[in-house]
Nucleic acid binder design. Structure first.
Lengths: 347, 347
DNA sequence: GTCTATCGTGGAAGCGCATTCCTACGAGGA
DNA sequence: TCCTCGTAGGAATGCGCTTCCACGATAGAC
């Protein structure tokens, strides 16, 4: 029997209908340290139900002085890398009575700061910054400053990617993964590598290049700097970067794109050029984006458990109370060799 | 010169530092009908800046009686279909002073209702339900009821997909798109079709099958019901469904998967069976998911402007005040013929 | 049988802000 | 010079809720 009154139903309405005080109604609905008699509790719950009562979350937040909103800030939600992480966060949050709000910076780093301010206004319990750090000191400085304020207000900040900020961080082992990949590729017999390196300012991209060079170095190989071309971290970026490498394709036997999306773009560029992967050129990516697992030839890459990354970040949020100093959780990637790097090694 | 005090900075702190009253500080910061002298305004703004003041959003919401939170509820944020829509919504929301909160139902329809309740508690200005309606009367009934309550509280509800609810809706022309696709495939010379149909309860899937059958019918062709197999709306669902069709592959010359993700799974199944697309079998999908545009052979599909869908939904939210009855915005798909349906027609 | 913990309940304060109402002040007309 | 009107600033109220405190009743201890 829903009784719709003008405006929304308040706790007072519920209390009145149940014939109890505001305090009792509140205690019955949200359970507190105080106990409420069974009969009254029942009456209150029944009243709430019949009135379709939904507690006003802002009023609760104000009265309690805290909320259970967790902000998640990503660079681009349409990018499967981030949407996988987001899915991991949301799944982990499931059943924990928290509301996840999602912000997308559209790849503009200064928006990260804006979101942080907005989330502070919301009195967010925590914010998860899920994107590569940038090599951009003014913005980084502003971010650092705003984080300090946010934490000063009692908020929790968790970062995903590099440990560049003095906060709990889920570190993705980009260097290690790229190094292992390089090692594996050398084992397969490749010797002359090109790299599609992504934006230079993006630390994730840079780490992967460094790690890759490292791995080659351990095998006694050099990476020719002129064969490292930068480009956007997207499919088109990979496509363009690969094209600019095509006239030197004779000097290469394998190309490493610093993420899968770029690798797919590169694969198209190679094909358009009349060459074949892996017959004419090996190709490897990074991330193991699940929607790209079925490209043909299937892509050699470094598998990153992205949903686990998100879940780990959420776990850091949940356990932040006990921390005394910034914690680090390392997530490793695992090389997955598939068809794009040698017919014989088809997975 | 940030002065960090215990707890967060309130408007009262700002007013005190500027040497004005609370009321004046509020008016200076948010501009109201009333004017504030220039000197005082300057003082207030300077004080706010130096204290790193961020207005408490819940307090504002409570005092004003409304918020600028817009809830977006999707079935699965890791699915590129939904993440594209989400990106469209968020981009459209950019600069409109609204906070988008994202909920993922993990494909459990009853969670849509739960989110609606939570968002009502948040006093959300609006909620966008971005997922196919289900053919599930108890849940649908509960949803309908909760929508009524939500709207009774002054909230705006916008749906994306089918116009099954009495709310503003962005209708995706699934039937029309599938019909056009069928027509195009018949023009290409295909005659004997199989369909990987997705879950039967999902109206989006069902509409696409119906539309496809419709298109065939117009060409005088029948769709053998035993060649329509259901399965999950995912890559693996497509893979399995295709496998179950493989023993009858001799009776087929083309398969329509009701979305791209399933089509990709199907393509793998076909390949694993030792057959080739399109030489042995044509294959078409639906959605034109951008990350899947580079599969090889490239996929014939129906392009859906998903970001535009999201943007349109947001526009409906923004213009909801003027509506007198549920509005409908129709978004059409466009057939894109690529390599998966005939070597000669490579795009 | 009285006295003191204990527990369930109600009253009321206060969270931070927008906003209404009120006051004081200055300017302009008579 | 006096009165009136317009305007800028301040005090106070209330949004819906949690929680501290007070109070009465009940139960256990002596």
């Amino acid at each position: 029997m829903a009784e719709q009154s003008r405006g929304s139903v308040t706790l007072m309405d519920v209390a009145a209908r149940a014939g109890v005080s505001l305090a009792t109604a509140s205690r019955a609905l949200n359970g507190s340290t105080r106990r409420v008699g069974d009969d009254l509790r029942e009456r209150v719950l029944a009243a709430a139900r019949s009135l379709n009562y939904a507690a006003n979350a802002q009023a609760q937040a104000m009265a309690r002085g805290r909320t259970n909103v967790v902000g998640l800030v990503v660079h681009d939600i349409a990018d499967p890398y981030f949407s996988s992480i987001a899915a991991g966060v949301m799944e982990a949050a499931e059943g924990h009575q928290v509301l996840v709000t999602l912000g997308s910076t559209l790849r503009r780093p200064e928006r990260e700061v804006e979101y942080l301010v907005a989330l502070r206004g919301q009195h967010s319990r925590a914010v998860i910054l899920a994107g590569s750090r940038m090599d951009d000191s003014p913005v980084a400085e502003a971010l650092r400053r705003e984080i300090e304020i946010f934490e000063g207000d009692g908020g929790i900040v968790v970062a995903i990617s590099q440990h560049q900020l003095p906060v709990d961080t889920v570190v993705i082992e980009n260097r290690l993964g790229a190094r292992d990949l390089a090692t594996s590729l050398v084992e397969l017999g490749y010797r002359r590598f090109g790299v599609l390196a992504g934006p230079d300012a993006l630390l994730t991209a840079r780490d992967r290049v460094h790690g890759f060079r490292d791995g080659l170095g351990r095998a006694g190989l050099d990476l020719d700097p002129t064969l490292v071309v930068h480009g956007a971290f997207t499919r088109d970026g990979g496509h363009q970067a690969m094209r600019s490498l095509l006239d030197r394709v004779g000097e290469l036997d394998c190309v490493f794109a610093v993420n899968d999306v770029m690798a797919v773009g590169a694969m198209v560029a190679v094909r358009e050029h009349g060459l074949s992967v892996p017959q004419d050129l090996g190709l490897a990516g990074f991330d193991d984006i699940s929607t790209l697992r079925d490209v043909n030839p299937s892509l050699t890459t470094v598998r990153l458990p992205l949903e686990k990354v998100g879940a780990t970040a959420f776990d850091l949020v949940q356990t932040a109370a006990e921390r005394t100093k910034p914690r680090t959780r390392r997530i490793k990637g695992e090389v997955v060799l598939r068809q794009s790097t040698r017919p014989a090694v088809a997975s």
